[in-house]
C-alpha cells in the first residue's frame, strides 16, 4: 500500500540545438534512444510520470504531456501510452525544427528548460493529494559545449533543486561540462560523459548507458556498480582574469572574487579601506633607509 502513493516523476531535457556538430548527424538515433528510455521509465511502475522537454538556442518547450495530444491508438500491439508519447514527441520536434529561425548560436538554453522543469515539479507538488509522495528527478541529454553565460541561472537552479530534494542527472554526449557537473554533485545526481570510441562518442551505446546509469531510482543506485564519481572542481574563477584560484580576495559588499588586492571593486565600484598592510610599509622602509645611512 505504501508504494501505491509513491510516484516517481522524470523530466527529460533533450538538447536539439542544430549547432552541435554531433546532433546533426545522429539526432534520429539520439531521439530514438531517449524515447525508449522514456518508455522504460513509464514501464517500471504504472504510476510513474514523465515529462519530455526539448531545448535549443532559441528557447525551450514541453513536448509531453500536452493538452492537445492525439487520441490514443494502438500501433503494432504497442502499449497505448508508449505510442502516444512517441508520436507526440516526434511530431513536436518535427514542428520545432521546421519553425526554427535561421540564425543560430552555440548557446543552448538548458538553464531555461531546467527552470521550467522546476516550476512544473512545484505545480505537481502543489496539486498532489494529501499523503501522496512524488520523487522527482531531471535528466539532461546534451551534446553542447559548456558556457559560463548562464552561470547565474544554473546556480539558482541547482540550489533550488537541492533545497527541494530534486536530483539532477546529466548525460553529456561529447564534451566535458564542468558547470552541470557541479549541479550533479550538489543535488546528488549522476554525471556521465559518453565514453569515446576512436575519438567519436559511442552513440549506438547511448541507450545502454541511459538504462544502466540513469534509469534506476536513486534509492537503488547505491547498490549498483556505477562509474566512479568525477572529481568536481569547486575552485572559483577570479572576476579579473577568469582564472581558477586557490586563495583569493572577496569584496565584502558584492562578494566578487579577485586574485590580487585592488583599491576599487570593479563590480560595485566600492572603495576599499586598507587597515594594516599599506599603512605599515612606508614606515619600515624609512627605518631601513635610516639604518643604511
Amino acid at each position: 500500500m505504501a508504494t501505491d502513493i509513491e510516484k516517481s516523476l522524470l523530466i527529460i531535457v533533450l538538447d536539439i540545438n542544430p549547432m552541435q556538430k554531433l546532433i546533426k548527424q545522429v539526432i534520429t538515433q539520439v531521439l530514438s534512444s531517449t524515447i525508449v528510455f522514456a518508455n522504460a521509465h513509464l514501464m517500471q511502475r504504472s504510476n510513474n510520470i514523465l515529462a519530455f522537454m526539448s531545448c535549443h538556442d532559441h528557447g525551450a518547450e514541453f513536448l509531453y504531456p500536452k493538452d492537445d495530444m492525439p487520441g490514443v491508438r494502438q500501433y503494432d500491439g504497442q502499449y497505448e501510452k508508449f505510442s502516444q508519447l512517441e508520436h507526440t514527441v516526434r511530431k513536436q520536434i518535427h514542428k520545432i525544427v521546421g519553425e526554427m529561425p535561421m540564425k543560430h548560436s552555440n548557446e543552448t538554453l538548458i538553464s531555461g528548460a531546467l527552470s521550467m522543469g522546476l516550476c512544473y515539479i512545484t505545480r505537481l507538488e502543489r496539486e498532489k493529494y494529501a499523503g501522496e509522495k512524488i520523487n522527482s528527478r531531471m535528466i539532461v541529454i546534451t551534446g553542447s559545449v559548456d558556457s559560463a553565460t548562464q552561470y547565474m541561472h544554473y546556480m539558482n537552479i541547482f540550489f533550488t533543486a537541492q533545497k527541494m530534494g530534486i536530483i539532477l542527472d546529466v548525460c553529456s554526449l561529447e564534451h566535458e561540462l564542468t558547470l552541470l557537473q557541479q549541479g550533479c554533485d550538489l543535488t546528488g545526481g549522476n554525471y556521465l560523459k559518453l565514453p569515446q570510441n576512436n575519438g567519436k562518442p559511442n552513440i549506438p551505446g547511448l541507450l545502454q548507458y541511459l538504462m544502466w546509469i540513469f534509469l534506476p531510482d536513486p534509492a537503488i543506485r547505491s547498490k549498483l556498480v556505477l562509474p566512479p564519481p568525477v572529481k568536481v572542481d569547486y575552485r572559483a574563477a577570479c572576476f579579473c582574469h577568469q582564472e581558477l584560484i586557490d586563495t583569493g580576495y572577496v569584496c565584502s559588499v558584492c562578494l566578487s572574487i579577485f586574485c590580487k588586492i585592488r583599491p576599487i571593486c570593479t563590480t560595485c565600484h566600492t572603495m576599499f579601506k586598507f587597515a594594516v598592510p599599506l599603512a605599515h610599509k612606508p614606515k619600515k622602509r624609512k627605518k631601513a633607509i635610516d639604518m643604511v645611512q
Binding site: 548557446e107 538553464s111 505545480r123
Partner: peptide, 23 residues
C-alpha cells in the same frame, strides 16, 4: 503560484532564461 515560486526560491525567470537575446 509560479510567480511566488520564482521570486521566493528560484530567483530566475524561466521566460528570460529561455530567451537568447536577454541571456
Amino acid at each position: 503560484d509560479c510567480e511566488i515560486f520564482i521570486h521566493e526560491s528560484l530567483h530566475t525567470c524561466p521566460g528570460c532564461a529561455t530567451n537568447t537575446d536577454l541571456t
